[in-house]
Design a protein around this nucleic acid. Sequence first.
DNA 1: ACTGAAAGACGTCGAAT
DNA 2: ATTCGACGTCTTTCAGT
Lengths: 152, 152
Amino acid sequence: MDQTDKKILKLLQEDGSITTKEIARRIHLSNTPVYERIKKMEREGVIKKYVAVLNREKLDRDLIVFCNVTLKEHSKIIGHKFVEDITALEEVVECYNISGDYDFLLKVMVKDMKAYQDFVLNRLGEIENIGSAHSTFVMGEIKQSYKIPITE
Amino acid sequence: MDQTDKKILKLLQEDGSITTKEIARRIHLSNTPVYERIKKMEREGVIKKYVAVLNREKLDRDLIVFCNVTLKEHSKIIGHKFVEDITALEEVVECYNISGDYDFLLKVMVKDMKAYQDFVLNRLGEIENIGSAHSTFVMGEIKQSYKIPITE
DNA sequence: ACTGAAAGACGTCGAAT
DNA sequence: ATTCGACGTCTTTCAGT
């Protein structure tokens, strides 16, 4: 992966529906090499996929909550069940195994506070292994980028 | 926005480079209405953009850290400067204004622990308003979805 | 609001350097 | 590893229902 590949990746992170023709124009190459490079990076998994980025507010998901979760002591080794259960919840858009006082950090996306209450009681509450949960509410989204920083 | 639009959005969140023809086939419509609906949702901002999703590891960004930050007492009202400064940092891929003990939550993406140390000392350290910072390290990525949950 | 068809642009691939 | 050219497919538009 050289500088040319990185230039292509930066453009594709910015706009996934940019044409190979336009990329070629911007990096001063013809179609084919750009095309071949992109296909190679897709094959190798450098480019995982292409997605449409939607507007949260217009889809009634106005509230984001970061939910810190601990597992019950005896469940920490058998975390697999928790992972399965949590992955199945569509409100949980991200989940990380973390260092520190808690075991997992969930990013939860719901309509409003009432929906979050419902999530904690009826969804999280149904999962057996959970010891405790601490919620941090997002009041404002300052920066949101799906880009991986690419070094020169 | 009706059920047909939502079906289209779900498909586009899954695969942003799916053809209108294929969408049309799957939802049993012809090209034109699918095309018109997508263009309408792009115009209205329901669909913000299309992006390529890249592989973090293959781009030397193996470490994710959630960094909880407080501002100095006198700076809390004048948060604008902090917002500007933090947005400019490419390692900070997300930033939220949050409830609780801290003022902001940053999601930071770096190569390794050494790079994070450098980030805290030389990047965050340069920003004037910061009172304290508490880092939570990601040990494992359990779930990562860019999809907004879409209700029926 | 949808169907079907037609025109133009783009993705895709082979031959050549 | 790149350029050029040709083919097939998709996007985009339009007339008609």
